[in-house]
């Protein structure tokens, strides 16, 4: 198993806490950090004919936005930190994609934040950390 930490990052301060937590541990353990940013996407959602036509262009825009607005500034900021950091932007269901990336990288563990919500929606539909804990192939750390 390689020394890789996977961090699920969503651009919020909760995600940032998870990232900082991971960076700290990675530094002491001499590990790599892979930051995963997932654009929520279901291949079973419904599109109108017009959306069908524009989908490819939209996808390009979305990836570019995620890259220029979120991932690139973040990677730039972490450049001098002395830790090997990689950024991944992917489409799909957040927990599933994070697990896939973790498996592919042979990661040691997954680190995610949580939004602290205990509302009804999370109870009914589940939350990303909750699902991750259930399906992850490696240990999961949820940073409060």
């Amino acid at each position: 198993m390689s020394n890789v930490f996977i961090v699920g990052y969503d651009g919020t301060k909760d995600g940032r806490r998870a990232l900082d937590f991971a960076l700290e541990r990675a530094k002491s353990q001499n590990a790599e950090v892979h930051i995963v940013y997932v654009l929520e996407w279901s291949p079973y959602s419904f599109l109108t004919p017009e959306e069908l036509e524009q989908r490819h262009a939209r996808r390009k825009e979305e990836v570019e936005l995620a890259s220029t607005q979120i991932m690139s500034p973040l990677l730039k900021e972490l450049e001098g930190a002395g830790i090997k950091v990689e950024g991944v932007i992917r489409y799909g269901k957040i927990p599933e994609v994070i697990c896939e990336v973790a498996k592919k990288a042979g990661a040691m563990q997954i680190i995610v934040g949580r939004n602290g919500g205990s509302d009804i929606a999370a109870r009914v539909f589940g939350s990303v950390p909750g699902t991750l804990v259930q399906i992850s192939p490696v240990p999961v750390t949820v940073v409060p």
């Binding site: 109108t48 069908l52 490819h56």
Partner: peptide, 21 residues
């Protein structure tokens, strides 16, 4: 479907859109 193509229109979506017409 190649997982790397996620985010593009899926075959299911194309079928569903055409069927709704």
């Amino acid at each position: 479907s190649n997982p790397d193509d996620a985010g593009e229109v899926s075959h299911f979506q194309a079928l569903a859109t055409a069927l709704s017409g």
